[in-house]
Measured scan of single mutants.
Amino acid sequence: MDVFMKGLSKAKEGVVAAAEKTKQGVAEAAGKTKEGVLYVGSKTKEGVVHGVATVAEKTKEQVTNVGGAVVTGVTAVAQKTVEGAGSIAAATGFVKKDQLGKNEEGAPQEGILEDMPVDPDNEAYEMPSEEGYQDYEPEA
């Protein structure tokens, strides 16, 4: 019985440690998101679009440190934060509304985080759909 109880105690310690790591990862992701939003706020009209992409990228980098179902929630929060940063930029006159959601080359930025393969159960990952990809044929 002692062996059984000791095993359960060790398992509990492992769960607590994993929860603490997840909590730490979420806190880091939130900190990076805040950094990115402050970065966007300090940019001029020309830099705002690039700044919004930076927020998304920093958040995406930190999301990889967070495991399990938390990833889905962090990704949703990050996307809403990026959308909010863009709205703030438009409201303050840093950028025109028609410039939001495009990178410096004018290509749409939507789907940055949505296409990231995420499995809350950590069982399997699927690649994003290939609808947006084109076949590449090298020139002879």
Rank of each mutant, 00 (worst) to 15 (best):
D2F: 12
V3A: 04
M5G: 02
M5T: 01
M5L: 02
M5N: 04
M5I: 00
K6V: 03
G7M: 07
K10C: 03
G14F: 06
V15D: 00
V15R: 00
V16S: 05
V16R: 09
A17F: 10
A17G: 07
A17C: 12
A18H: 03
A19K: 05
K21R: 05
K21Y: 12
K23S: 04
V26N: 00
V26K: 00
A27R: 07
A27T: 09
A27K: 15
E28L: 09
A29K: 04
A29F: 02
A30W: 05
A30Y: 15
G31E: 02
K32M: 03
T33Q: 00
K34V: 11
E35D: 03
E35V: 05
V37F: 11
L38Y: 09
V40L: 12
G41E: 02
S42A: 14
S42G: 09
S42T: 10
K43Y: 14
K43W: 15
E46D: 10
V48S: 02
V48C: 07
G51Q: 03
V52T: 01
V52A: 12
A53V: 11
T54K: 15
V55H: 02
A56V: 14
E57Q: 12
E57G: 06
E61G: 01
E61P: 05
T64F: 02
T64A: 08
N65P: 03
N65R: 08
N65C: 12
N65D: 04
V66K: 04
V66Y: 09
G67M: 01
G67I: 10
G68D: 00
V70T: 04
T72V: 10
G73L: 15
G73M: 01
G73H: 11
T75Y: 14
A76F: 02
A76P: 03
A76L: 12
A78T: 06
A78Q: 02
A78R: 08
Q79D: 05
K80E: 05
T81Y: 03
V82K: 09
E83M: 12
G84N: 14
G84F: 05
S87R: 07
S87N: 01
A91E: 13
A91K: 10
G93K: 04
K96I: 15
K96T: 04
K97P: 13
D98W: 04
Q99D: 09
L100V: 12
L100Y: 15
G101E: 00
K102M: 15
K102F: 00
E105V: 09
G106K: 13
A107T: 13
Q109W: 15
E110F: 08
E110K: 02
E110A: 10
E110R: 04
I112L: 10
I112C: 11
D115C: 07
D115P: 12
V118A: 02
N122P: 07
N122V: 09
N122A: 11
E123A: 03
A124K: 13
A124Q: 14
E126T: 07
M127G: 08
P128T: 07
P128W: 02
E130T: 06
E130S: 12
E131S: 08
E131K: 07
Q134W: 10
Q134T: 10
D135T: 11
E137L: 07
P138W: 12
P138S: 01
E139V: 07
